[in-house]
Design a protein around this nucleic acid. Sequence first.
RNA 1: GGGGGCGUAGUUCAGUUUGGUUAGAACGUCGGCCUGUCACGUCGAAGGUCACGGGUUCGAACCCCGUCGUCCCCGCCA
Length: 586
Amino acid sequence: MRKTDHCNALTIVDIGKEVVLMGWVQRRRDHGGVIFIDLRDREGITQVVFNPEISKTVHEKAHVIRSEYVLGVKGKVCKRPDGMSNSNLKTGEIEVIVTELKILNTSQTPPFPIEDNIDVSENARLQNRHLDLRRPNMQKNIILRHKTGRIIREYLNNLGFFDIETPFLTRSTPEGARDYLVPSRVNTGHFYALPQSPQLFKQLLMISGFERYYQIVKCFRDEDLRADRQPEFTQIDMEMSFIREDDIICVAEGMMKKVFQEILDMNMVTPFPRLTYDEAMSRYGLDKPDIRFGLELREVSDIVAGSNFQVFSSVVKKGGIVKGLNAKGCIDLSRKEIDDLTAFVAIYKAKGLAWIKIKENEWQSPIAKFFTEQEKDALTKRLDIAPGDLVFFVADKAKVVNDSLGNLRNHLGKKLGLIKDNTFKFLWVTHFPLFEYNEDEKRYEALHHPFTSPLEDHYDLLKQNPLAVRSRAYDLVLNGFEIGGGSIRIHQKPLQEKIFEALGMDTKSYEDKFGFLLSALDYGAPPHGGMALGFDRLVMLLCGETSIREVIAFPKTQKAACLLTQAPSIPTNAQLNELSLKVDLS
RNA sequence: GGGGGCGUAGUUCAGUUUGGUUAGAACGUCGGCCUGUCACGUCGAAGGUCACGGGUUCGAACCCCGUCGUCCCCGCCA
């Protein structure tokens, strides 16, 4: 018995054919006489019929069939009796009358039904991921992931990119995320690190002269997990020589355009809008703004600096800022809802959330009385205030104000239903700061990574005012998710050394850690740059999911465990001995 | 490292506020009946370490302490 057709394939044109279907039992309907079974494979469902009048022995054999049994059935494709077709099924006008049954395997009753929209804990799903993955929606997600990868490979291949593998067993580099370490048996006491990204290798490949490289590749970061973060995740990694920002941006835009066209049949208009980092922060409070809706932030520090409301004026005096967010038409939010929003911004360290309800003839608010008419007029203009509005303010250090109001903006966008279903808005954020200051370690750190090139006319600022230096880095944002980022890299040794020095490393330290890169830069490194896209996040958004776990076949839990395989596990003493390792849990 | 939610039958939940007889429901499962269903119908039955450990109490799913797991978030994620 050989499978002749998939379970979505047969229709009225196949009537009369003898076929063999193989698949899983979706559902059994035993009428005592006739038995109906919905047979499922990866493509669809076909109803197969066991009729004692056709074959008594086969019908008898069919009695033991249960959910998720694996069957091979041979039979004739027949038109269903009048009025018995099922318009929900692609194969709903036919059925296969079985003349020969092979039970290829039995099955335990599954712990949850193999169908979509099941109400079952993620725990149960992950413990039985092999069954969870049988569900149509998971099959759809994983297949869509495959197709997306195929489209991207084809796109980059056509543009002359080479797919080149880079090592997983590599060396730990300072800065960035925590590394996953792998002990070396042959080099006692030495460890490899799994790559956080193939960053340095792809730069070396540019220096090697390949000009265009890509890889869809796993990366590893030992940091805490989130709905959109897994310890191992997949990047679309690209690098190009002899290019400027616009070249790589254009490649990425073309890729997204093609993916959305072919996967979702949606036309993404290119070029995508661009914002500088400073503008994004100013208008949205975040470096990955969701531009599917308005509700932009406006700074009002200048207006309230001299006001009688001490909370605002004193913050401005101390170098902080005050920003407002006008929730248009939201005057009817209840006191409780506003309290909830206050609790929401507290997550981001905001000490309070000031609000004003704009009535026809007055401002209803605990703080309205502090403002003069001139101040009110200025706020009205700045925040586009009109009757019916509800305006929020946060006053604090810039980081707290932007964090809290930026996230409040996203929260309100969802809560108020301002985001249309099935819309996708891309955005480039450019000109990121090159450095940020780490208060704990009292030193500058690379915001992107230390190989990012500063803007050419900012070279002079490197010494005098490092925080003012802007970089040739760009992030690709989709619906408020950072789905990619990259930069033009430093390709000249002296500049790279300057950056290491600005990061507080001395010659010995950077020679020790990055000597191989500096030496490579010294042998005719071409100008180059690239980017990496978060493949899981992209596929998640394409699938309309809210967690990347839904598009990863075997994801890990928040404690970075695999519930299916019970990884990670405790090694045997023999394994530890071989590696000269001792575990000290004290 | 921190905040919050959840953990009771195979599954999803109720019961916990106010401790008290035999821990319920739905779906699923199993068995009987049923020849046109497709969420088949119908009659019946089985199924529980109330996450784990300790404590309080005459008595704990329920109160207290601790642990574990899982989800969301902050920190972290060059």
